[in-house]
Design a protein around this nucleic acid. Sequence first.
RNA 1: GUGGGCGUAGCUCAGUCGGUAGAGCUCUGGAUUGUGGCUCCAGCGGUCGCGGGUUCAAAUCCCGUCGCUCACCCCA
Length: 421
Amino acid sequence: MKIQSIRGVKDILPDEIWKWQYIESVAHNIFPRYGFREIRLPIFEDTRLFSRSIGEATDIVEKEMYTFNDRGGDSITLRPEGTASVVRAYVQHKMCNPPSVLKMFYIGPMFRYERPQAGRLRQFNQIGVEAMGSPSPIVDVEVMTMLMEFFRELGLNNIKLEINSLGSQECRPRYRELLKAEIEKSLDQLCSNCKARYQRNPLRVLDCKVEQCGKVAVGLPKIIDHLDAASAEHFSEVRSLLDSASTPYSVNASLVRGLDYYNRTAFEVTSKNLGAQNAICGGGRYDTLVEELDGPSTPCFGFALGLERLVSLVPFNDMKNLQKYPDVFIVCLGEETKTTGFQIAHELRLKGFWVERDYEMGSMKSQMRKANKSQSRFSLILGENEIRSGKFVLKHMETGEQIECPVEELATEIAKLSADS
RNA sequence: GUGGGCGUAGCUCAGUCGGUAGAGCUCUGGAUUGUGGCUCCAGCGGUCGCGGGUUCAAAUCCCGUCGCUCACCCCA
């Protein structure tokens, strides 16, 4: 039996990889402007890191982690998200240096054992950003505006920034109990799903897709009306700073995050063009996580965005300036040209050109076909005549025009003609 | 974990009432001795997901199974 890739994982093939590289290059270009530097983290960690940070009772920890014992008997987990590892590294390497804020981003694969569907894989890639060391709403808004600038640079449209406040460790549990009590009053009107989950996850009832539940939800209390004074003040500052940056957003009072460690600001960026899994990015403030992982009190703000989902949204068709195909395809005719062809390819590559060729030394026709298929901008033809005259035929594949060119002028000629077209 | 849809050539798909497979694209070669794309011609390519059953006969009907996909759930 032929071995297939594991369910829920995907190969990124050479025809597509340029999209990923492009997105990553934009991240590498924009994030440092805001002071973020890359950190590379292991993809597996001590299982306890995730159960302690994400929350024992979350779906991720309860049923979605790839957990196994290594040969030494230790429980290892393929990371289901990146923030826990960043915090672990922050604490482990004693990176705290108050009052300065440490800003980092990471790019890499995450693993969750879920049923695959549109926009959801078992191995998927995220870009994550974490700003560690300040409770200031300026940090929240700077990170969110950086994100929106990143999306703008990538040409995304039809995306929506939604924000909410989850309050503090004090006011949130209070609100939860209030909400549960209110839900119980209309329990008979809710869908079976909500009846089953409201005890465990009452916030979910607020954005249930069933119409009946939506009607009930309208009358339920909202977290932002039950914030403690400090959280309310924080949230209002976030909003006015977003306004002052002219960043469009809306408040979604039913926005919830799936990980336990979030407090105060929570946000999501969604797109209508993604299918049911419509969030391209989610994040928020997590002021107590570092302490919970035995570090110093360090309020933080961060987000993670889904690269597969982002790749599907970026309008790559409109991008003209990205090089995807070779500059030159070298066509060699006859045994005599073997060495010269090899040398010319080598020299052009040393000068930075993308050079492709045929290795079968087939007929001119078949080599030209390959040149055409490679989508090279030029073909360079060298046969016995050219070796003798010292001038090679440089053919522009799109226009069909060809010129004779001495070997020492090839590089400048190719560069010149490329710039013209 | 629960539902729906789908598995036929490398890709996209047709295949009638059951009679052991077809198109387009791709690919290879030729028409054009050293010039690609367009056109024309020829050729390569399939255990019809897999296993069982019914039948003289199964891509087609039945049962099972695996895979893909979409949705619920959940989330990036």
